[in-house]
């Protein structure tokens, strides 16, 4: 492995970690809302969150590229803020990845929250716990398998993304060139040995992630309780 390969691995891990943390922050309230709401909009929001599951990554990447570009709403906003344009930068990659991996965080969490049901929340209220208190002292511990599944899946899924990265981030060493792109580059350059090493790393990594998930949580993968 050369410096470029190591740089790509480091960048990939950094990207996946930042995205996972952001998804825990933003995915949790979305999953909570989806699990608890009786609003008619639940179906609409549920479908929007699930879109990246079925959409080709290039389609998602294309729209995000337009939105974040100089003529897009997001692009104009970031320029107005003095941040410049996001495509072909690490923050741009983070934002795109958050959208791309959103369902992998939200769905296990939503299932875990739904499995808890109303009763523990009512019990906590009759024991003087405010809703915020109840969330931390009852919901989070009971939904732990959901949080674990969501975090692991979101992390692994971000590590494995390719199409969105290529559309948004391009191929800039140490800035936006992640492992999957690096493998693509190696293959294009007919550097099969290097491609082999990185591909094997990805394979082992993905297997270990899923193995951990299934052994820690045999019946609760994707947050499904028993």
């Amino acid at each position: 492995m050369d410096a470029n390969d190591l740089g790509a691995i480091w960048l990939t891990l950094k990207l996946a970690s930042v995205v996972t943390i952001l998804l825990l922050l933003f995915g949790t309230p979305i999953a909570w809302w989806l699990a608890r709401t009786r609003s008619k909009l639940k179906g609409v929001f549920g479908a929007v969150v699930a879109l990246p599951l079925v959409l080709p990554p290039t389609v998602l990447g294309f729209y995000l590229l337009l939105a974040m570009g100089p003529n897009g709403l997001v692009g104009k906003f970031t320029e107005w803020l003095g941040l410049g344009l996001l495509p072909f930068t690490f923050p741009g990659l983070v934002i795109a990845s958050v959208f791309y991996s959103l369902p992998f965080m939200v769905q296990p969490l939503q299932n875990a929250f739904e499995a808890i049901g109303d009763r523990p929340l009512e019990v906590a209220a009759t024991l003087r716990a405010s809703p915020w208190d109840t969330f931390w002292s009852v919901v989070v511990p009971l939904a732990k398998p959901g949080f674990l599944s969501g975090a692991v899946l979101a992390f692994a899924h971000t590590v494995g993304e390719f199409g969105v990265v290529l559309m948004i981030g391009g191929n800039i060493p140490n800035k936006t060139r992640v492992v999957s792109v690096q493998i693509y580059d190696h293959v294009e350059a007919l550097e099969y040995t290097q491609a082999h090493v990185l591909a094997a790393c990805m394979l082992v990594f993905s297997f270990l992630v899923l193995l951990t998930l299934y052994t820690l949580n045999p019946n609760k993968v994707k947050g499904r309780e028993q």
């Binding site: 009512e122 209220a125 009759t126 716990a129 009852v138 009971l142």
Partner: peptide, 18 residues
């Protein structure tokens, strides 16, 4: 509810399993 001085015992077991 959480500001009312009441105790409530539900029909089925309602203990926190964790």
């Amino acid at each position: 509810t959480h500001q009312r001085s009441l105790g409530y015992v539900f029909q089925e077991a309602s203990l926190f399993e964790h």
